[in-house]
Design a protein around this nucleic acid. Structure first.
Lengths: 146, 146
DNA sequence: ATCCTAAATAAGTTTATTCTTATTTAAGAT
DNA sequence: ATCTTAAATAAGAATAAACTTATTTAGGAT
């Protein structure tokens, strides 16, 4: 369980531990692979019916910014999804149906991290999405785009 | 001028050439580096006061999907920006102020393109964003996140 | 235990973007 | 030139996400 690790991380960065935050972290732990924000919200509402969606969004974004959670941008096809407890990696996203596949490893090379450093830019995370067409969408490609 | 190239590309893919599309392409050509959708809309409205924002979004997205235009996702800090007529590259995006820097070249390696192929996935584009803090935002990092 | 204060929250508003539907139109065929 | 039809559009509704502000609260200090 990474619940404790998450709490510790937040504390370490000076953030307060609220019941809502605990619940969100718990929901992430129980959730299926890569839930949507709305799914987290639904789950948390079972315990805290009055929690606002804003609180869910705010905390998910915070955890993404802290590198504890990975956000998958699925373009406009689908709302973002959030991954926890998986090694850092990237995704293939289908432009037609919005489905995605996980890629192994990470494509960011040293050169660019150095370039960032030279500019005085501190990199704390990154995201790469490859866009294209999955097998089942390939035939109808042109129709798909429209 | 890449106006003609854009028109040709759209025709080649079977899309119709409407006055609105011409105007959007023209606006992109005249626009400053990496305009926002709203800026394109404003420019196009000078000629077509009745054009809907939807038409602008729809066509920008289409051109991104066709690889003619690059979209820069600036997270929630800022709305997306659109680049044309520049070699393919990636960006550094500041989590605090939303500013960005262009990186040289492209970080996608052969391995992953092959992995995509093996899955029957056709890659037609990709985007990589590195997230972190620019020089001037670095000090106030913790405050910035909140 | 109480107090203090910055941070977190809920509620409601706002915004950017997308979707739905009825209407219009580009462009190929006649 | 006219006809045809799928595609594109405008308008308005819907949605996800973020912002604003007043209230509450976590957690450190007393």
């Amino acid at each position: 369980m990474y619940d404790k690790f998450f709490i510790q991380q937040l504390k370490q960065h000076g953030y307060k531990i609220t019941p809502q935050r605990r619940a969100i972290i718990e929901a992430l732990a129980e959730a299926p692979l890569a839930p949507k924000a709305s799914e987290i919200w639904e789950k948390v509402r079972q315990k805290y019916p009055d929690i606002s969606p804003d609180t869910v969004y705010r905390n998910l974004t915070l955890m993404v910014d802290l590198g504890m959670v990975q956000q998958i941008y699925l373009r406009s096809k689908e709302t973002s999804r959030f991954e926890v407890n998986v090694p850092h990696h990237h995704h293939l996203v289908c432009l037609k149906c919005g489905c995605y596949y996980c890629l192994e490893g990470c494509l960011v090379n040293e050169q660019n991290l150095k370039a960032a450093k030279r500019r005085g830019f501190t990199v704390i995370g990154h995201a790469l999405e490859l866009y294209g067409y999955c097998m089942s969408c390939k035939e109808g490609r042109k129709e798909g785009l429209r």
